[in-house]
Design a protein around this nucleic acid. Structure first.
Lengths: 240, 240
DNA sequence: CGTCAAATTGACAAGGTTCAAGGACCGTGG
DNA sequence: CCACGGTCCTTGAACCTTGTCAATTTGACG
C-alpha cells in the first residue's frame, strides 16, 4: 500500500489502491502492476472491449473510466449486468479456452492495461481471487435488486454499492463521487426506463438524501440510507 | 463417460454424467467421484446447507434433489439467485477463508456428498472450473431475465434453461422433466408473485406450448419456444 | 373423511411504461 | 461571440403489466 514510486504518472493509482485493499501486495507485486500499467490502452465510449461468445485473449485491468458488462436481447433490449470500475478485472477466469459470456463496453473514455499473469506473485493471485469472488457477489446483489426491490430501493442500493466500490479505489470520499453515465444507462442497469429513473431520482433528491449535479453525486448519510432500505453489503472474506 | 461401475447403486449417476459432460473424465477421476459419493449426506426441504456470511467448510456436490441459492432482504422478501441441480457444486471458490455470499437451502430432499478436493485429477479440476464459469453465466442470464423480460418471457426462459441443465444430467429428455418446486418458489426466482406466476403458466398452457401436470413439465417444442422469446443459451467453452 | 399446503380465481390498486413534447446543456463552427 | 445541432434531462397524461387481498378449490396424505 506504500512503495508506489512517487514519481510515477499515476493513472494506475486507483486500480492499484483497490487491488492492494483486496489483499495487501508486496513490493514486487506493486512493481509488476506499475510496469504493466505503463503499456496502457485507451478505449473510447461505446467501443466494445470484449464481445460475447468471442475468445478472451487476455485478462485486462481497468485503470480509469467506467465499463459495463452488457447483455443484449434479440429485439434490442439491453441489460447492464454490472459496472466495471478502476481496479476491476475484465475477463478473469480460469478457463483454458475462455469465451466471454458477456460483452464489455466502455461507458466513458477508459484506460486499460493487460493484467499481470497469474502465478507471478502469490499476493497478486490472492487479490485476483478475491476480486473474482466480489464480482460474483455483485452479480448476486444485482439479482436481488432486480428481483425484489422497487425503483426507489434499486437506485439507492446501487448508489450505495457504487459508493463502497469507488471508495475502495479512492474515488469516493464521504459519500461524494462521480457517476459518469446517463440515466439511460442506469435504466438499463436497474431494469427500468430512463423516464422512471428520472422521476425516482427527483423523488430522492426532493427528500434531501442525495444531491446530483452534473455527474457529481453526494450521498448525505450513507449509513442512514443503508438502514432505510435494509441494505446488507456483501461480505466475501475477512476484512471486506 | 463410460467406466462407471455398473454395480454401483447409482445415486450419483446424474451428477457424474453432468460433470463428465462438462469435461471428459478419466477413470481415476470417475472412481474418485464414485467413492466420494458413497459418503452421502441427506438434507431435508427448507434446511440450510450454507448460510450467508458463515465460513464454507468444504465444497459439496449435489447428487439428487434441488437446492436454491437465496438472498433474504431485511423485511423478509426473498430472492432465489439460482437453482442448484444434480451435478452442481456448492461453495466452489478459490478463496482461502471463504465466506458464503449466499444462503443455500434445500428445496426438496437432497443428497449431497463432499466434492473431491482440487488438485487430485486434472480432468476433475477442469470440470470444476467449467462448472464455475457456467454458474456465473447462469447468474448473468438471471439478471437479464429479471431486468429486461416480462413475466411470460421469464417463465419460458427459465424453463428452457432448466430443460438444458437437466438434460445434461440425464434428468430431462425431449423437453420432459420434473420441476419439484412450488409456484411460490418460482415467483421468488423470477421476481414475481405466485399469483402472477400462476396466471402466466395458465396462459402458456392455454397456448399449448407447455403441459404441467403435478410436477411434470413437458415443453412441446423447445427450439420453437427459444426462437419465440429470442433466447440465446449461454456458451462458455467449446462444446457447451 | 379431515386436514393442510398448494393452486386457482376475482376485483381492484399501484408501480412502472409509453408516447410525445419541451427545455437544458454543451461542444462546434461560422 | 453567438447560433446551431445533438444529446440528455424533464414533464404530462394515458395505459398496461403486475401486485394485493381475500376467498375458493384442488390434491395429497394419514
Amino acid at each position: 500500500m506504500s512503495a508506489i514510486p512517487a514519481d510515477e504518472p499515476n493513472i494506475a493509482a486507483a486500480a492499484i489502491l483497490r487491488l492492494s485493499r483486496l489483499h495487501a501486495l508486496d513490493d514486487a507485486a506493486l512493481a509488476t502492476l506499475t510496469v504493466s500499467a505503463r503499456r496502457l490502452r485507451r478505449v473510447n465510449p461505446d467501443n466494445e472491449i470484449l464481445v460475447e461468445g468471442k475468445r478472451i485473449p487476455e485478462t485486462l485491468l481497468v485503470l480509469s473510466g467506467w465499463c459495463a458488462r452488457v447483455r443484449q436481447l434479440a429485439d434490442g433490449r439491453r441489460q447492464v449486468l454490472s459496472f466495471l470500475l478502476p481496479g476491476d478485472l475484465i475477463g478473469l477466469c480460469d478457463q483454458v479456452e475462455p469465451l466471454a459470456c458477456s460483452t464489455v463496453v466502455a461507458l466513458t473514455p477508459v484506460d486499460l492495461c493487460v493484467a499481470p499473469d497469474r502465478g507471478m506473485h502469490p499476493d497478486l493471485d490472492r487479490a485476483y481471487m478475491i476480486s473474482r469472488a466480489r464480482d460474483e457477489a455483485l452479480l448476486m446483489a444485482q439479482i436481488a435488486r432486480l428481483g425484489r426491490m422497487n425503483a426507489y430501493e434499486r437506485v439507492m442500493d446501487l448508489l450505495l454499492e457504487l459508493n463502497e466500490r469507488l471508495e475502495m479505489a479512492g474515488l469516493a470520499a464521504s459519500g461524494r463521487f462521480a457517476v459518469p453515465v446517463t440515466q439511460e444507462v442506469l435504466a438499463d442497469t436497474l431494469g427500468l426506463t430512463s423516464v422512471h429513473i428520472n422521476r425516482t431520482l427527483q423523488l430522492i433528491r426532493a427528500e434531501g438524501m442525495l444531491s446530483w449535479k452534473g455527474r457529481e453525486v453526494v450521498l448525505r448519510d450513507a449509513d442512514a440510507i443503508s438502514r432505510l432500505i435494509g441494505r446488507t453489503a456483501p461480505r466475501i472474506s475477512g476484512q471486506f
